[in-house]
Design a protein around this nucleic acid. Structure first.
Lengths: 165, 165
DNA sequence: TATTAAGTCTATAGGAATAATATGAACGAT
DNA sequence: ATCGTTCATATTATTCCTATAGACTTAATA
């Protein structure tokens, strides 16, 4: 399971990624815009700062900024920073390898075999998804959804009155 | 993270899958052969029974047998039975969908977008890996490991004693 | 330069889930 | 009948998750 920590962290970072030149954004704004528990988010941003993914500015008009350009921060980095290793089993983790104590010989362990496959597939996806890329895809799907909504409301077939955003 | 429950369960089932015509195998033998905590494994097997993946026989020469042929049981079934849904986030789960309460609109949520990709990739792997298939791969890698060891010691050029796979 | 609003940061509470053990009842083959 | 199983329940220890309260820090402004 992805922890709420990572989920919230990602959501906050996506907001930062969406505001290019703008100065620091406060934790409270991030919390409100994504409906996240304010205090918890603060703790998360703090951890992201320790990990070097964001920089913070204290005081009156302080807040948080991405340390690097959104195109240079991958989703896998964020998850690794907050949740730890991606691997579902420590014995296939690149970043936090640990032998299973009940295992006789690792390289002929069936569980390890599949889990390694899963880890590799997961890592491939997450390593190649940057904040900027994700943000762009979100924008794209928002546009195509609007187009769809417009079409749908033309033909009066929708029963729900969902707002555009 | 894959729970120990699933890990142990899989390991036990792989033993069952490896003994074709043999009658029921006792939990204690499974536990010993895979170095798993006996009592904990019992609880796991019980759950696997309730889920219909194994059948049990009580009494003197009792034990556990796979309900279906090893080629017809997928790893994903086992994990779903013991750990629940594969999805890292409930809003992309096929078997246990749940809306995130902080989410405004699901289909333009960046987190959901990536996590769905991951879920699909994971499911694809686990749905297509059967106990029999896995067991065969383990056997194959055991063979190649033996061969590799022999070769490596022949050509004295490798500095690490890493196996072929 | 004192004041104070706006923020960051530290520490920890409370609860849920995990991992395992203990105890003993139900059962069935021999 | 009895021995060796599975099966059921509940108890425990431990770790992790989620969240909050409150102390501390910074900087704008008067």
């Amino acid at each position: 399971m992805l922890s709420k920590k990572s989920k919230y962290g990602l959501k906050a970072l996506l907001v930062l990624a969406d505001e290019p030149g703008r100065g620091p954004i406060q934790s409270s704004e991030l919390a409100e815009r994504q409906r996240l528990p304010k205090k918890f988010l603060e703790a998360i941003l703090l951890e992201l700062k320790r990990r070097g993914l964001v920089q913070s500015k204290k005081g009156r008009s302080g807040g948080y900024v991405l340390s690097r350009r959104p195109g240079d921060i991958t989703v896998s980095e964020v998850i690794r920073a907050l949740d730890g290793p991606l691997a579902l089993v420590p014995c296939v983790s690149q970043t936090a390898y640990m032998r299973c104590d009940e295992c006789f010989e690792e390289d002929t362990c069936g569980v390890r075999l599949v889990m390694k496959e899963v880890r590799d597939a997961t890592a491939h996806i997450l390593d190649n998804t940057t904040l900027a890329g994700l943000s762009a895809r979100v924008a794209a799907s928002r546009r195509s959804r609007l187009a769809g909504t417009r079409l749908a409301s033309d033909s009066r077939t929708t029963n729900s009155a969902k707002p555009a955003l």
